[in-house]
Design a protein around this nucleic acid. Structure first.
Length: 442
RNA sequence: GUGAAAGUAGCUCAAGUGGUUAGAGCACCAGGUUGUGGUCCUGGGGGUUGAGGGUUCGAGUCCCUUCUUUCACCCCA
């Protein structure tokens, strides 16, 4: 082996930057999460879908412009097509819906748990490969749809122990901010830039923010107007600022949203935050983010209304709202709060068969074989060892019942069944036990 | 992509200003109690100190390069 090859062999032992290996222990956690995401989605009436894990590069540049390419893992296939690993699922969703739009009953309530890749520099809570729970409702412009999306997220979070004391839902409306900016004499074409500046408000000190805004070409009167918007503490204060008919209508929508969330029983999570504008250009109305209240981490989830996206992909004009929740920040947070459950990476056996003597091993396999054939999780010690060791192994595997095969099994067809939790033990006839193992009461 | 800090066993951490063969706990494996358990006792495998090069009689320790992680930017779908 050449020196170069030795080097290569060593470097391939390391998983690529920003990726993770899922050993059984981590895989069990991941599956726990997926199952909860899936169950919650289905319970709320969403249907599961998925698309390809890579798409035409254009699919992503249409929406986000060419700058996005540097954040993508892109490549060319042998036919010269430009492709990219999916950095998110929303473009795929828009494409899938644009193709079949007229055939789908509305509202379309879909969910997915895609594995996605972004070529960014990894940090805490942000990797190059991750999973993201996506929830979308397409074809409804009613606030109820926004409320439903948010409710699924909160219902899930509540289930994993993240109540309103620990986390909050930050809500704003891009539309209303836009109308307020217009009232302040700031043209619509500069709103994108304003959103970007407003996004910094919570991260910077007052002086730093002023300086930053000034550098971005915001004049003093504009800065005052922007700050007035950013300082609005709640919806009722927003009312006094909203002068135009449009902004009043949008404010009414936000009130409606709050009412729906109250009705669903998750109103306590709601916080009005004027600085929440989201980075993406395509959001058109209500936007929201979910944060832990200590706010030391990135957003747990984020989303909003994007009424123009489907038509951008060549589909009919269809209103839509949705959010994404990544696995990384969520699991980090659960770990930090001690709320991540211990999930065994194997299925604990219902029955664990133990022999008193290696010569009885054939009977162990016979019983295990029969139980497994009947659909029970049954197991035995991997080595012929003293009974003490076998019991130890059974306990380690979290088995419920131990079945002891001894001389009496050979001579009288008797086995002993022991409840490993209570310690209770009883002798039974083998055939009778095997006929209906589920009727065992101990 | 730019800037900064860190990296010692699977995990958590030791190892004065460079100085014998890099240690401990947990975990893992094997023995011990001869028909009954996560306890206990004994032993064991494990590391080219992230990798590569340099300075030196001598490098875990100092210098350079690189990889990974973390933090701040960029961006955040």
């Amino acid at each position: 082996m050449s020196e170069n090859q030795t080097k290569k062999t060593k470097s391939i032992l390391q998983a690529p930057r920003g990726t993770r290996d899922f050993y059984p222990e981590q895989m069990a956690r991941l599956q726990w999460l997926f199952q909860l995401w899936r169950q919650t989605s289905l319970r709320h009436g969403f249907e599961e879908y998925d698309g390809p894990s890579f798409e035409h590069l254009d699919l992503y540049t249409i929406k986000s412009g060419d700058e996005i390419v540097s954040q993508l893992f892109s490549f060319e296939d042998r036919g010269g097509r430009d492709l990219a690993l999916r950095p998110e699922l929303t473009p795929t969703l828009a494409r899938m819906i644009a193709v079949k739009a007229n055939a789908l009953p509305r509202p379309i309530k879909w969910f997915s748990i895609p594995r996605s890749c972004r070529a960014e520099r990894p940090q805490k809570g942000r990797l190059r490969e991750f999973f993201q729970w996506n929830i979308d409702i397409v074809g409804s412009d009613e606030v109820l749809a926004d409320a439903e999306c948010i409710f699924v997220a909160l219902d899930f979070l509540r289930q994993v122990g993240l109540g309103p004391v620990l986390i909050e839902l930050r809500v704003n409306s891009r539309f209303i901010v836009s109308t307020l900016l217009i009232d302040a004499g700031i043209d619509a074409e500069r709103h994108g830039q304003m959103f970007a500046i407003m996004d910094k408000y919570e991260k910077l000190s007052e002086a730093e923010f002023d300086k930053y805004a000034c550098e971005q070409g915001v004049c003093d009167t504009e800065l005052t107007a922007v700050k007035n918007i950013l300082r609005v503490p709640d919806l009722s204060s927003l009312e006094s600022l909203s002068r135009s008919e449009q902004s009043r209508a949008e404010l009414a929508k936000m009130r409606e949203l709050k009412q729906y969330l109250d009705d669903f029983g998750v109103g306590e999570y709601f916080v009005y935050k004027p600085a929440v504008v989201r980075g993406l250009a395509y959001y058109t109305g209500i936007v929201f983010e979910i944060f832990d209240r200590s706010a030391k981490m990135r957003a747990i989830a984020g989303g909003g209304r994007y009424d123009n996206l489907i038509s951008m992909f060549g589909g009919p004009s269809m209103p839509a709202v949705g959010f994404g929740m990544g696995d990384v920040v969520l699991m980090d947070l659960l770990d930090e709060l001690g709320k991540a459950p211990m999930i065994p990476s194997h299925q604990p056996p219902e029955f664990f068969v133990i022999d008193a003597d290696p010569s009885l091993f054939g009977m162990v396999l016979k019983i295990v074989g029969c139980l497994r054939g009947k659909g029970f999780a049954a197991d035995y010690a991997p080595k012929r060892q003293a009974m003490g060791k076998q019991f130890k192994y059974a306990t380690g595997r979290l088995a419920k019942f131990a079945i002891i095969v001894g001389d009496e099994t050979r001579t009288q067809n008797l086995i002993s069944v022991k409840n490993l939790q209570s310690g209770e033990q009883r002798q039974l006839n083998v055939e009778e036990f095997l006929k209906s193992p589920e009727q065992l009461s101990l």
